[in-house]
């Protein structure tokens, strides 16, 4: 049974089988008013997880509850409280934003025109433009403006920063931080981990359809250290290694923090942890 706690999103034992891919026993729960980064390489199952959460695809097992309510029985009620934004998807590219907004607002009893104006102004969006005339970053901002204007408390974002230049990504990260300050919960899938270093409170790490980590960003990073080797990896370090990568000057080796004693190591970035673990998983 899904617990009574009113987490904005609680997933228990989610699984989905495809002929060439399996999403296995995914369980996690979001903390209200936090930013959770959902990381993993392309094909790890991030989008499948999100699609299953939103019932775009039918999971083979598991339970999903938003705000303590099972999705299937409370679909409309839940959808009024969440906003979904996907970078790869643009709706009605030749329609003016004001036409899309005019239709969208009719579906939400709690639509707030003042909030809509506020976000459109804050994001610098012109209602007379079409999505085709917007940059990728602006499209994401428009989708966010729509979601926030109907009072979404949970924002689910699928790869929102993919394909954006560093400045646009930085702008979006700031937007997410501002939303967090407003008490919104943000669930943010990405393979661009540097964005999460700036804003995430928690990290979910998905690898080959399995959830490998569910932790705070700091704890997740503190659990790992990087050793840099010029030339060959010493045998003792090789034994402690949880992943190695070639560099111009030799190798970088990922080790668990508790195994790092005796080696010269430094803090590992989120990206380094993900890359090393993925490379190790490939070998297995």
């Amino acid at each position: 049974m899904v617990s009574e706690m009113k987490s904005p999103l609680e997933v228990r034992g989610l699984s989905k089988n495809y002929p060439a891919f399996r999403l296995q026993d995914i369980s996690f729960s979001l903390v209200p008013g936090s930013i959770t980064g959902f990381i993993g390489r392309n094909g790890a199952g991030k989008t499948t997880t999100i699609n299953s959460m939103l019932s775009f695809v039918h999971p083979d097992g598991g339970e999903i509850a938003f705000f303590g309510l099972p999705f299937a029985e409370h679909e409309a009620e839940i959808k009024e409280k969440i906003g979904f934004v996907s970078a790869g998807m643009t709706y009605y590219t030749r329609k003016k934003l004001k036409a899309i907004t005019a239709v969208t607002k009719t579906f939400y009893p709690g639509w707030d025109d003042a909030a809509y104006r506020k976000y459109m102004d804050a994001f610098g969006l012109d209602e007379n433009k079409t999505p085709a005339e917007l940059s990728n970053g602006m499209k994401i901002k428009y989708a966010l403006a729509l979601a926030l204007s109907h009072g979404a408390e949970l924002l689910i974002l699928d790869e929102p920063t993919s394909g954006l230049d560093p400045v646009s990504r930085e702008e979006l990260v700031e937007v997410f931080l501002n939303l967090k300050d407003e008490g919104k919960t943000v669930f943010f899938s990405t393979h661009i981990t540097s964005d999460l270093e700036k804003c995430a409170d928690r990290i979910l790490f998905l690898q080959q359809g399995c959830l490998k980590a569910d932790d705070t960003l700091d704890s997740f990073r503190d659990a790992w250290q990087i050793a840099e080797c010029a030339g060959e990896i010493p045998p003792a370090l090789a034994q402690a290694a949880r992943g190695t990568c070639r560099t111009r000057g030799g190798y970088t080796v990922l080790v668990r923090a508790e195994d790092a004693e005796g080696f010269e190591t430094r803090e590992a970035s989120l990206e380094e942890i993900m890359i090393h673990l993925e490379k190790e998983a490939e070998k297995e």
Binding site: S55, A76, Y91, F107
Partner: peptide, 14 residues
Amino acid sequence: ENHDAAYTLTLPVS
């Protein structure tokens, strides 16, 4: 072509 299903299914409708 306009991803209408994805848009519609994010609205509060079944």
